[in-house]
Amino acid sequence: MRYEIRVEGHVSETLTNAFPEMEHVVMSGQTVLFGTVIDEAHLYGLLVRCQSLGLRVMEMRQLPE
């Protein structure tokens, strides 16, 4: 499954390295992390990672294959 997670603000390159399995793009005051998510555990893991890095999740959705 492919997902995208939109977080508030422009995330620095350094911090995006904490998501090596995801690609990212910065746009209009948001950073979009996107890529393949292995399973639910991974998905929740990504959310916890956002939380522990102080990132504010605005939106998360599954992408069409």
Partner: peptide, 12 residues
């Protein structure tokens, strides 16, 4: 005025 993520940017 910036758009950086708060903790990330400020900590740096």
């Amino acid at each position: 005025a910036g758009h950086s993520t708060v903790a990330d940017f400020l900590l740096a």
